[in-house]
């Protein structure tokens, strides 16, 4: 029997939540009926959303208890305002009380919501503090990145504060998005309309080759659920030794790659064959090649 794939990328935040969780297991905290909306958008005559662009709640994934949040890219690019951020921060405080098997973040966000500038910035900082405090108390935090907006700005930092990142090939992860880089440095610095360049800079494959995501999956809800399951079984933790190991790895990354100016040159430096063909490969063919990069980072030197 052929089971049709359910696309994650094209789904709304609410649909993603339903698809990632076990059937009928979702329980939303502060659902839209509660009408908790942004207090800052009306002064700009902008519409509000009854969930402020993020759905939070609890449920199960293959029977394992999780708390979960999903950002809605269609509302202000999933950007973090005061209420949106507070919902995420509150979820981590709840996780410390309830000790679920994981907190799962379905991220899609341009970062700080500029319409709430200062409040958004502080909100992102509060998310980071609450996330790391929860991890310090043994709560596992997983991020899933896919969707048109990608995961940028402060939320790009949040993603990398998690125990593991699951990325779709179509996902994009970074600090400043391509438009921002072009605005600051001109088209010579980065041509944001050059789709191939944008994908090989921010896309799932490059992030996987660098080790910035632990799982790279197809746009298929079943594959994402399977990765969450694997990530729940994997060794994890937030201790000084692990942080020092990460530090050494990030030093090595600079040593090996900082002098290069294109992803393809970086993949060549990692010893991957025919690096210019990698963007075109499907994941079945890409993954075995990518394992060489993963062992490059694990190797000595």
């Amino acid at each position: 029997m052929i089971v049709p794939r359910t696309s994650y990328v094209e789904a709304t935040a609410r649909r993603r939540v339903e698809a990632v969780l076990d059937h009928d297991s979702f329980w939303e905290f502060l659902p839209p009926e509660e009408r908790v909306t942004s207090p800052h958008l009306s002064q700009l005559d902008l519409p509000v959303a009854f969930d402020d662009g993020v759905v939070v709640g609890g449920g199960t994934v293959q029977g394992r208890r999780v708390l979960l949040a999903a950002q809605e890219g269609a509302f202000m690019g999933g950007a973090v305002g005061e209420v949106h951020g507070a919902k995420l921060t509150g979820l981590f405080a709840r996780a410390v009380d309830e000790r679920p098997d994981a907190v799962v973040l379905l991220l899609e966000s341009g970062g700080v919501r500029l319409h709430e500038a200062n409040a958004g910035l502080i909100a992102v900082s509060e998310i980071i503090r609450a996330l790391l405090a929860a991890r310090g108390r043994g709560i596992r935090v997983l991020a899933v990145i896919g969707g048109g907006v990608g995961c940028f700005g402060g939320m790009g930092i949040v993603a990398r504060c998690c125990d593991a990142v699951i990325m779709l090939e179509e996902g994009r992860l970074g600090m400043s998005g391509p438009e921002v880089i072009e605005m600051a440095g001109g088209v010579e610095e980065l041509d944001s309309r050059d789709k191939a360049l944008v994908w090989r800079t921010f896309g799932g494959k490059h992030r996987y080759l660098l080790g910035d995501c632990e799982y790279l999956v197809e746009d298929d809800v079943a594959a994402i659920r399977e990765s969450i399951h694997q990530a729940l079984e994997a060794a994890s933790g937030f201790e000084l030794e692990q942080l020092e190991a990460e530090h050494a790895l990030l030093e090595k990354r600079l040593r090996e790659l900082a002098h290069l100016h294109d992803a393809i040159d970086m993949w060549r430096a990692l010893g991957l064959p025919d690096p210019d063909t990698l963007p075109m490969l499907d994941l079945a063919r890409f993954t075995p090649i990518a394992h060489r990069a993963r062992s490059f980072w694990k190797g000595e030197g």
């Binding site: 940028f152 790009g156 930092i157 949040v158 993603a159 990398r160 504060c161 992860l173 970074g174 600090m175 400043s176 880089i181 440095g185 610095e189 980065l190 800079t201 921010f202 490059h206 992030r207 660098l210 910035d212 942080l243 990460e246 530090h247 990030l250 990354r253 600079l254 790659l257 900082a258 290069l260 100016h261 294109d262 992803a263 970086m266």
Partner: peptide
Amino acid sequence: HRDELLGINTYMAH
């Protein structure tokens, strides 16, 4: 661009 290629968000998170 080069800092994005290197994953500057990862360095910030670190």
